[in-house]
Amino acid sequence: MRITCPHCGERDRREFTYQGASEIMARPDADAGVSAFADYLHLRDNPAGDTRDMWYHDPCGAWIVVDRNTVTHAVTGSTLAREGRT
């Protein structure tokens, strides 16, 4: 499995740390209420197939949103998290 870091190019999966589903990019508003935050923290779509999740590139420190398939392990795209994709 190889992942493309937008800064450093395509690298071995060993250089990255998985940080969970990209659902964490959609943080509820501060006044959204307790259950919205509980859902945000714990509940997951958990798709079998195409997914989007967060990876951290250990050497350069970039947070990346990666497009991936959970059944085939194919990696199809990546962007910097600060571009705001969920």
Binding site: M1, D12, R14, Y18, G49, T70, T72, H73
Partner: peptide, 13 residues
């Protein structure tokens, strides 16, 4: 393997 997956096989690392 530490990443979400439904493949009943893992990777080399």
């Amino acid at each position: 393997d530490f990443y979400s997956s439904y493949a009943q096989r893992g990777n080399l690392p």
